[in-house]
Design a protein around this nucleic acid. Structure first.
Ligand SMILES: [Mn+2]
Ligand SMILES: [Mn+2]
Ligand SMILES: [Zn+2]
Ligand SMILES: [Zn+2]
Lengths: 152, 152
DNA sequence: AATAAATAGGATAATTAATATCTTATTAAG
DNA sequence: CTTAATAAGATATTAATTATCCTATTTATT
């Protein structure tokens, strides 16, 4: 249990309840923005200060434990850092999915054409997720692909 | 002269000096963030309110005349909307370059693997631009690939 | 050119977002 | 258990963005 204790220890960060709650919650949601995250965490830790959340998000990012996910026309989200991957944003239900596909061919093409030495890439694609396209959805209906928080 | 008058007229937007200055300035820089833009515009229009800038940026985006460019670990930038392309951000000098390469192969691969219907993609790559890699640059030296504003 | 309606700008206030400060509490090591 | 180091919470501060309201400008029409 609490795999994140080890992650924190590896960076010499103390395993506070708040940090573990933040990491667990982000992990559970997959991808989440600050406000949704704060709201969710308040259910378990009604006393947590928003400053603590911001402070920790920034600290955890600088230790490469978290990673920011910038989405077009959306609030910034965060995720547990994993191997490089592509993000898919469903413009119907708002869910964010990870896809792990090879990008080397594209990177090489860009490198050749531009002369840039490329160190990493951030790829987001907009579209409609499988669930949203299977269901014929009226304009004002929303799927809830994104995980609902039960108890944390 | 003032190709942007036609652009504005096409969206039934009035050609105010402020709007034209904003568009000219963004066009000249290529990619620019709000603060740099405001600073640059103040040189020609010392009276322009920041509210006017924000208001216009948002309006012009909603009419698809401008487009936001979200960069990792950077302030949001803006550009004149053009055909889809990839952005290269040089982590040494901060310049942003456009590259026009075919992405269909990658999009198809993602589509196949995920089941998503993809409508558009936002691709940013981090790295070192040609100029920065040609010059052996000390850690605290910065190139100035990005255009300096002369007179507007 | 003058007129008038529609739209946009400027000043400012109000919101919202993010960070900094400081004191108390918690963690983790010995 | 004690202690030093670190982090949390409360709050203040700063920064970023949006809203309001009144005046100015644009543009179509005469
Ligand atoms: Mn992800
Ligand atoms: Mn561009
Ligand atoms: Zn969906
Ligand atoms: Zn460079």
């Amino acid at each position: 249990m609490d795999r994140f204790k080890d992650v924190l220890k590896a960076s010499n960060l103390k395993s506070t309840h708040q940090r573990l709650a933040i990491l667990d919650c982000i992990d559970m949601f997959g991808h989440i923005d600050v406000d949704t995250l704060y709201e969710a965490i308040l259910r378990k830790y009604p006393t947590m200060s928003k400053a603590t959340l911001y402070r920790n998000i920034n600290d955890l990012i600088s230790f490469h434990i978290l990673e920011e996910v910038k989405l077009p026309n959306q609030k910034q989200q965060y995720e547990i850092k994993k191997v490089p991957h592509i993000h898919l944003l469903c413009t119907h239900c708002g869910c964010v999915e990870d896809v792990f596909v090879e990008t080397k061919t594209l990177l090489d093409a860009v490198k050749d054409k531009s002369g840039f030495t490329i160190s990493n890439s951030f790829i987001v694609m907009n579209g409609t997720c499988e669930l949203c396209s299977s269901q014929v959805i009226s304009n004002n209906t929303q799927n809830t692909c994104s995980l609902e928080m039960q108890t944390l």
